[in-house]
Design a protein around this nucleic acid. Structure first.
Lengths: 118, 118
DNA sequence: TGTATATGTAAGTATTTGCTTACGCAACTT
DNA sequence: AAGTTGCGTAAGCAAATACTTACATATACA
């Protein structure tokens, strides 16, 4: 429980269980028990993960009768993507040509804040 | 100091201070004190963050006299990028249009005028 | 040589995390 | 109405995290 302080996307995806949950519900909404069936940890633990994902906007819950369907809203991942993309130039050897091309265009179109020198 | 168990890249970049460190040294190596100058936390705290980043391969340290220059090795970010990229289809409306556009011109790239591809 | 500089690391601490079990409640089923 | 199902949440706990101060060590410099 504690406080739900700085729930940001980076922290949300830091946990492997949460990444798996995202992976599970990315394509289709699932109710909580169905999600929990895929893990060895308890249902309340999954419920808490869902709560965290909800708090940072990665999941929206739609109630349907007594079930609650969890739907992924992955727009927040763009924050991660944008952050990582700044550094693609430092490792993009293994990136496919279209991808890197697209990234370059994208980097051109958006005004990123740059790593600041002193 | 507990154990340095599952140091993975996702967890490494979950901390905002570590993201700032990466941002600082992405372009140029810096010694530890220079890095620490940019933060309000103590030098040992920075040293510990560097250690974590080193343990997951994001930073390599090169000793030079009594200084230790920290150099970013951001290849590990590709793991994050690849993971996020799986879900790009779920959030990249603006990205998607550009992407499909690029795919089109990539498919028959002699018939289209391109954006400023650098 | 002695001292300042650059740094690692240990020890201690407060907070956060990720889990558990226990319980409560609303919504279906019979 | 009574039981079952689906779920949230509280309480408790072990471990991890992010810091601090104190100290050790190696290098540079006078």
């Amino acid at each position: 429980m504690s406080i739900e302080a700085r729930r940001d996307v980076f922290q949300a995806i830091a946990d492997p269980t949460r990444r798996q949950i995202i992976s599970l519900i990315a394509n289709k909404s699932m109710n909580l028990n169905s999600i929990a069936d895929n893990f060895n940890i308890s249902r309340p633990a999954i419920s808490q993960h869902i709560k965290i994902l909800t708090e940072c906007g990665m999941v929206v819950v739609r109630q349907e009768g007594r079930e609650r369907f969890c739907e992924a809203k992955l727009d927040g991942l763009s924050e991660v993507s944008n952050w990582v993309d700044q550094y693609k130039q430092f490792w993009n050897e293994k990136f496919d040509s279209l991808g890197s091309y697209l990234e370059r265009i994208q980097a051109d179109n958006q005004s990123n804040e740059e790593p600041n020198a002193d």
